[in-house]
Design a protein around this nucleic acid. Structure first.
Lengths: 339, 339
DNA sequence: GTATGAGGGTTATCCGGTTCAGAAGGGGAG
DNA sequence: CTCCCCTTCTGAACCGGATAACCCTCATAC
């Protein structure tokens, strides 16, 4: 019933614990014959190295952490995190690394979790997501001296390694596309204003529109309700926009429904672009023009870099591919009337 | 730079390691004054118990595992798992338990992960989800003797504790509602046929319709594409259904789009019901009638039971609340024509 | 024949905390 | 005053591996 240890193997094989340790770790110091015998016995009795015992000797914990500081209801809806996690997992699994996950409600709690995991030697490093401006977590993690990969813009990641993609470029492409279609009044329904990537998009949006189109940005909490509310307000204004860019697809879908409700036809009267191209974007009518990016790959890149950091390599900031625009049925030429 | 240990505290306080251990664990054997002094020092230098060292003494790992055997693309879309996880997290966080997560691609791999985690003393127990018929994982986990909570129907969970909800009841309520609205030809676009809960729903659906309505069930892989394809086929048939019940909301949305495309108006010509009421169901037009259940609570119940199991208590199967029907705009009286 | 060294093992220690068997010191009962 | 017990604390062993250092044997080189 008890889990077998190397001592058990040693006594069965008639050698010392050390010989077993060497044999099972591929180290020199045992003959091929002895090694084979030991490995066979280990196999037979189903021995696994006790991770605690290994960790005690300063070995890696073979585990990295991720704390998510978002309300459950938002996590459930946004496919982003699940896709990111599955990308991360793909890389971790290959190296037998596990992912320790925790949903928290504040940055203080998040920092505390990291301190605890690190202090308890449970993890070898962490991912930091949803960067804020003047993010307190950055300083705390720098101080801990723990390997960290920030999934977000390097301007705010301090001395921590960052993996990021150029949202500005994606915004410029989108605005250029809409302007080319004749749109001169473009709105943006953005996510949480305290997130760095939101501000990056905000600024790129304002700049890209400057001189070529009127523009307005409304901030929300990423939920469908707020996306719907924002859309309702925008479409009720006398100078209503002819195109709206949403920061996620659930808001885009909500916005499209509101438009329908208000007898504003998509894409005839209103063009809609969604950020992040989950399957959802393709099942609604019309299908959503979306900013497509490979989120699992994004996570995979972050994971690779974190493992490299843990291995002691130095990791420069990595810029992942920017999201590219996938035109579908929700965008079209700007309406003549109303301009 | 090195993490402080109880030996450091001991030397500072001028006592032995043992006194420190007793003091910090609330055990008798140290005076109140000494205890206070030790605790103060520990606090000051930021000591944390090394989880590896504790685990080595047979202590709990304070960690439970969850392996998900679904393709990444499906995980990303289905809000179910993220909501389940956030519910689980809520309970675990209170008890300082961590969740070890792994995405796998086969049951063999999943069993192997569990064996490894358990063998390595990394976890104290696991959740088992997406039960199949004659699920090989059940036997393997029983054999390991590890605490397990099955999130799924107890009929297939063997000797493992189950937390489940009566999908049959929800199906009956739905069919009753549709029949009351006059529907006499009802289709069901179901999920993966190998999952137990799919079959449970299948059977309940067939039974509930028996004698009161024609019925047909089509199986899919939960993706929007397959949901759309199934809907297209159903609506193209000469005896097309007047109501369709979908096993998740992404398929329901896809189905609704297909209907629109085929000039089948919802709810005038076709009523649609979605299983699982994510925010998505409320942002589309018309909003989806859905089978609502509190998934985070479901996860929380499972987590509570797993912790109880780990604590050595015996845990009878727990039946969570069944999903309840939330009527919205996507359902209405059956059309007269075509009957 | 002796030095040299490689191959194959072993012993002793350590990692950081827990636990058990005692050991001092103090107080009360007889 | 002695015996006994209780409180408070300590030394040593232990958990399951990793690792440094050393030991023995046999083969080869000089």
């Amino acid at each position: 019933m008890k889990r077998p240890t190397i001592a058990d193997i040693a006594s069965r094989a008639g050698v010392s614990k050390v010989a077993v340790s060497y044999a099972l770790n591929g180290q020199p110091g045992v003959s091929a014959a002895t090694r084979a015998r030991i490995v066979a016995i280990a196999e037979e009795i189903g021995w696994r190295p006790n991770s605690a015992a290994r960790a005690l000797n300063g070995a890696r914990a073979n585990c990295v952490g991720l704390a998510l500081c978002r309300p459950a209801r938002i996590l459930g809806v946004e496919p982003f995190f699940m896709e990111l996690i599955s990308g991360i997992e793909g890389v971790l699994a290959d190296r037998s690394y596990a992912l320790l996950l925790q949903v928290v409600t504040s940055h203080e709690q998040e920092s505390e979790i990291y301190r605890r995991w690190w202090g308890e030697s449970r993890i070898d490093g962490v991912f930091l997501v949803d960067l804020h401006y003047s993010d307190t977590r950055v300083g705390e993690l720098e101080q801990l001296g723990m390997p960290v990969v920030v999934i977000g813009h390097p301007s705010e990641s301090g001395s921590l390694s960052a993996v990021w993609s150029d949202d500005g470029e994606a915004v410029r492409e989108t605005v250029g596309y809409l302007v080319a279609l004749g749109h001169r009044r473009i709105a943006r329904v953005a996510g949480l204003p305290e997130l760095v990537h939101t501000t990056v998009r905000d600024q790129a949006f304002a700049q890209a529109c400057e001189g070529v189109a009127e523009h307005i940005t409304v901030h929300t909490d990423y939920t469908g309700e707020e996306g719907a509310r924002a859309t309702r307000r925008l479409l009720s204004s006398p100078h209503r926009p002819t195109a709206i860019v949403y920061d996620n697809d659930i808001m885009a879908v909500a916005g499209m429904s509101v438009a329908q409700e208000m007898r504003v036809e998509v894409p005839r009267d209103l063009s809609i672009v969604a950020w992040d191209d989950s399957p959802l974007a393709q099942v609604v009518r019309p299908p959503l023009t979306a900013l497509t990016r490979d989120i699992p790959a994004y996570g995979a890149h972050a994971a690779q870099r974190l493992l490299a950091l843990i291995a002691g390599e130095s990791v420069p900031p990595f810029e992942d591919q920017a999201a590219v625009l996938t035109p579908r049925g929700s965008t079209g030429p700007a309406p003549h009337s109303g301009m």
